[in-house]
């Protein structure tokens, strides 16, 4: 089979992008090397580590196992898309405040898993957090500070939800 290229229509972080992509590319390769969205990381390239996690239609998904065509016509959010015009997502800020990112290489994937969790419930139990992050390996932190950060961010989100609605 020889290599061919086609046009992929991707909705990433709200932007509609049409790009030429070799047909055998994964979503991860497309994000990183075609769209230059290098925030999403690669640690194993075969589903074992979670570093490449992005949010597809609300669900944390491993971009290294996703053929790029499977991501067409869906809403893709990467770590770059978590922050809004008002500044970083509370999770991003709390990760910094709590020292939840050491080397930071697992962080984008973990943030995507955690953001999807907090979108479901802003006051998850510790066990729910552990379950939600159970597909994201972190080699630096021992996870403790990550839990703290997710909990604090959840609290901030509940407060702002109450305030607005």
């Amino acid at each position: 089979m020889s290599k061919t290229t086609s046009i992929a229509r991707l909705r990433v972080n709200g932007d509609l992008r049409e790009v030429g992509v070799p047909t055998h590319y994964t979503l991860l390769e497309t994000l990183r090397y075609v769209l230059a969205l290098t925030g999403t990381k690669q640690g194993c390239d075969k589903g074992d580590c979670g570093a490449c996690t992005v949010i597809v239609d609300g669900a944390p998904t491993l971009s290294c196992l996703t053929p790029v065509w499977e991501a067409e016509d869906r809403d893709i959010i990467t770590v770059e898309g978590l922050a809004g015009p008002d500044g970083p997502h509370p999770l991003q800020d709390e990760f910094d405040l709590n020292g939840a990112a050491q080397c930071g290489f697992c962080t984008p994937g973990i943030l995507c898993s955690a953001a999807a969790l907090l979108a479901r419930t802003s006051s998850p139990t510790r066990n729910e957090i552990q379950e939600a992050l159970a597909g994201n390996l972190c080699r630096c932190t021992g996870y403790a500070k990550i839990y703290d950060a997710v909990e604090s961010a959840g609290r901030r989100l509940s407060v702002s939800k109450e305030a607005t609605g």
């Binding site: 969205l37 290098t38 990467t78 770059e80 970083p88 990112a101 962080t107």
Partner: peptide, 12 residues
């Protein structure tokens, strides 16, 4: 905060 903390958590 770490000086590169937010860069790490925002993907920059």
């Amino acid at each position: 905060r770490k000086i590169e903390g937010l860069a790490k958590s925002t993907g920059r």
